Computed example of a mutant assay.
Amino acid sequence: MQSPFLIPPFALECKTFAKTSFGASFNHPFVLSLADGSLDPKLFRFYQIQDAKYLEAFSDACAILSTKVKDPDDKLWFIDAARMALVVEGQLHLGYGKSLGYDAKTIANTEPTPNNLAYQNHMVATALQGTILEGLCAIAPCPWLYVELGQHILREKGSIPDDHPYASWLTMYSDPGFNEYMSNLLTRLQKYADLSDSESKNRAKVAFQQSCNYEWMFWEQAWTNQNWPSR
């Protein structure tokens, strides 16, 4: 699958290590239905609210990593990444909230699904307990997959029709502007890989693969309207 941005050597090692986990999301029925516009709006609403909850943890992980790095440019990049997760993507969620009937209070009062909570805990725990490289590998699959997925769908469709029910989502993640974000992320991934020993690199690749698995599980929790067992 063609990448819209340069993939440095260690990032390629991670993607290769993840094997089919990385590409599995592209063929998930939720993604396919989202792309062709047939996805039930109730499932998309469920997904959007859970995604907003997830992005709070993604922001936390980036903020934690900002306290670990010493390079001021890297520190600022992680702080900006934490902010972007809440502000830029948050605008998309609240935009759909107007048509799908939810708001910031709805998001705050919603409990994460089991799959979502597990993914959040994986990212935050890795950022806290692991090396900078391991924390980077735990957060990298989410933006990487979304950018490649959005631009893959755009190539497949040729263009996004204005009347597509999920045009805003498809347009956002197919935006070439995200390529610069990914280039910056993967450049830092390579930088900290070059500073790491082989054991840390191996743990980082495992963290990357686990996040790829959680990405597929995130689509699955939305597709199945996952909930906790009755208490």
Rank of each mutant, 00 (worst) to 15 (best):
Q151Y: 03
A18Y: 12
T171Y: 01
F178A: 04
Y119P: 13
E220Q: 14
I139T: 15
H152E: 14
F46Y: 12
P4S: 09
Q221P: 05
Q48F: 09
Q50F: 04
N225R: 14
P8T: 03
R45W: 00
C62K: 07
L149M: 13
V147F: 09
Y214I: 07
G97R: 01
Q48S: 14
I107W: 06
F178E: 07
P141L: 04
G101L: 08
N121V: 12
W144Y: 12
G158D: 06
A18M: 04
T113W: 00
D60V: 09
S25A: 15
L12H: 15
V69E: 02
L128N: 04
A35E: 09
Q48A: 14
D162E: 15
I79Y: 10
A140E: 06
D71I: 03
G101H: 12
P176V: 05
N179H: 13
S99G: 08
P4K: 02
F17H: 14
F208W: 07
R83S: 12
Y47V: 00
D197E: 10
M182N: 07
I132W: 01
A222F: 03
P8L: 02
K98W: 02
A52K: 05
F44K: 09
G95A: 13
C62F: 12
Q48E: 08
G90S: 08
L136V: 07
W228M: 02
S21R: 14
F5C: 06
L186N: 00
Y192D: 02
